[in-house]
């Protein structure tokens, strides 16, 4: 902008930099603190924030190794963190893959096919998505208990059951993908149909390859959503070896058994990959977010 700037302006810029840096330092405090705590010996807040001696005991436990304590006793890992991380990744990957598959086909119908009550169905889906699952937990638990009596591998305490439960939340993704489909000219598919392609072939070989970017966005958003999901997983999974990270992590911070240092290492270990994925996919996620939706 070709605007004449005065001296005041330069002071404002410096003030903005100082303010931003101070604010960022304040923001980073919890994140830096947790990293420092994970290297500090012991499970109590002792000593300074910058550890005077670096200890890997918490990291050993988080990675599933035991170590020799100061008094010579063998300290066993309190919780199977890596197992939880694996559970989380497994559930999130499977459910996001299925969510992408389901919402892509549904979005295709909303974008390209004609049927009655189209806008009504879409609107009511968006409305229904506003109800958080935590309100219907009793019912969800009852459903899975019933399913479990007949199909044991889909019942309570199974990962397949949790994955199935996550498949209800597709409305937002349908909305996002449909918006993308709308930007692709319909003529391309019509050409394919003129050449003798069926509906499904036009969808599979023409539209789908062009929609890969948005499918990636939806996959990442769904993946992060499932990794973070707490309420449904907390009632469907109870056994320690079965838990996801989101459900299991809180066991570190019970009043009676406060494993602050062990938690720090586990938190950094499990939080880091997700954070990195999130930052790498930041641009895509932002575009998906602005399409409408709140972090879940």
């Amino acid at each position: 902008m070709p605007i004449v700037v005065g001296k005041k302006h330069r002071w404002r810029i410096i003030a903005a930099h100082v303010g931003l840096i101070a604010f960022i330092l304040l923001l980073m405090f919890p994140l830096l603190a947790i990293i420092s705590i994970s290297f500090r010996p012991g499970n109590f807040a002792t000593g300074s924030l910058i550890p005077s001696e670096i200890s890997l005991e918490h990291w050993k436990l988080a990675l599933g190794f035991s170590y020799q304590g100061a008094d010579g006793s063998l300290v066993e890992p309190p919780f199977p963190v890596l197992r939880w991380l694996w559970n989380s990744i497994k559930i999130a990957a499977a459910s996001s893959f299925l969510i992408v598959a389901i919402s892509t086909t549904a979005a295709y119908a909303f974008a390209r096919l004609k049927f009655r009550y189209k806008s009504e169905i879409l609107t009511s889906m968006m409305l229904l998505q506003m109800f958080p699952a935590v309100l219907a937990l009793v019912a969800i638990f009852a459903i899975f208990e019933t399913i479990g009596t007949f199909i044991p591998w889909l019942g309570v305490e199974t990962h397949a059951g949790v994955i199935l439960a996550y498949l209800g939340g597709v409305a937002l993704h349908i909305w996002t993908i449909r918006g993308y489909f709308d930007t692709i000219p319909v003529e391309i598919e019509e050409c394919a149909k003129v050449d003798g392609a069926t509906h499904w072939q036009a969808f599979q070989y023409v539209l789908l390859p062009m929609a890969v970017p948005v499918l990636m966005v939806v996959f990442v958003i769904a993946f992060i959503g499932s990794i973070q999901e707490y309420p449904v997983a907390s009632i469907l999974l109870r056994q320690e070896a079965n838990l996801t990270l989101a459900v299991g992590s809180k066991y570190y911070l019970y009043e009676q058994k406060y494993l602050w240092g062990d938690f720090a290492a586990a938190a950094v270990l499990s939080g880091l990959p997700i954070t990195v994925v999130f930052l790498l996919a930041q641009r895509w996620i932002v575009s998906g977010l602005t399409a409408g939706g709140v972090k879940g």
Binding site: A33, Q228, A246, A267, S270, F278
Partner: peptide, 17 residues
């Protein structure tokens, strides 16, 4: 960054801090 860290982890970190 605060948005990129999984919510359940940052909440528990705050609980400890």
């Amino acid at each position: 960054l605060p948005y990129a860290v999984p919510g359940f982890i940052s909440i528990l970190v705050f609980k400890g801090l």
